Amino acid sequence: MVSSDNNQSTAVLFILLGFSDYPELEMPLFLLFLTIYAVAVVGNVGMIVIIKINPKLHTPMYFFLKHLSFVDFCYSTIATPLLLENLIVEDKSISVKGCITQFSIGITCVMAEMVMLAVMAYDRFVAICKPLLYTVSMSPKRCALLVTVAYAWGIISSIILTYSLLVLSFCETKIIDNFVCEYSVFLSASCSDKHFSEIMLFIFLNLSSLCTLIIILTSYLFIFITVLQMHSTSGRYKAFSTCASHMTAVTIFYGTILFLYCIPNTKNSWLVVKVGSVFYIVVIPMLNPLIYSLRNKDVKETFRKLKNLKIFSQ
């Protein structure tokens, strides 16, 4: 175990190579990722502020969107700074405890976001398929409970998966061909039996992905059937438009996860894995606020007012 030998835990380091094989690209990538991270922070914090101050947006859909933005902000902030640091410093080492801490917070956000996307799909299902019951079904207490479930699942998953890492032994400093503390980093660096850790990862990651995807796909199946039964063309367009942003976010989020899963485990695939991981860690938290704001008149109108007041200027 990591905690069984203090000398071991303090001496062992992970050296995250990142993109050091291409030193000429490190500074351009640093500037690119820094720009994307800044947009992600401004976008997610801006979304939270806009929803908070605009009474028109005090609805269940925007309540969930506010928490999705918060999760994206936390995940981007815990992962991206290490990536940026890795691109400009010569010492690319990180302690085992530091790496585990980053992973623990990051996996909390990932698991919470999965549940949050499923909750948002359920919200659209109730709004379109059962509009007369929407106020009762999505009451403030129910919404708060659903968000609590999302955070609770993230925390529970993080505790168990982090424990599955703490039982591993790390015997020596390891050079890792990665730029962030993912689960695979610990498995590749461990010198002890990894069977328990691999089972825990398989159970929780697949359980979360499968259950949330079932909820999302089932919700949109009923939405699609309900919309097809509408006689009004404008009603169909309005129903689909309220779901378009969420469907786009879900497609990008799960599409990236499936893409990373489907990459064959070969030496030649490391660059593709890194690019996919960068998209997952850096780009998605930036895209979500853009996706939800570009198609929403109320959000854009509020943003214009704030911009005129110079709240988001400079």
Rank of each mutant, 00 (worst) to 15 (best):
N44D: 04
T251H: 01
S190Q: 01
V89C: 06
H231V: 10
Y280W: 13
F179N: 02
L29N: 11
I223A: 05
M27Y: 13
Q314G: 04
V96D: 04
M114A: 11
F30I: 11
I51G: 00
I105G: 06
N296K: 12
C129R: 06
F14E: 01
C129V: 15
R236G: 04
L16I: 04
L205M: 12
T302G: 14
V185Y: 05
S9C: 12
L161T: 09
F224N: 10
C181M: 10
N7A: 09
T256P: 05
F204G: 13
V147Y: 08
S241K: 14
S192H: 02
L83R: 07
S137V: 14
I291D: 03
L290N: 04
M47E: 01
L29K: 09
I48G: 01
V282N: 02
M286L: 12
F186S: 01
F202Y: 07
V41M: 14
L82Q: 11
S209Q: 11
I215S: 09
F179G: 02
D91N: 15
A144H: 13
T256G: 08
F103V: 00
K274D: 05
F103P: 05
S234F: 07
N206K: 06
C129W: 01
V110G: 00
M230Y: 05
L146I: 08
Y280Q: 15
S219N: 00
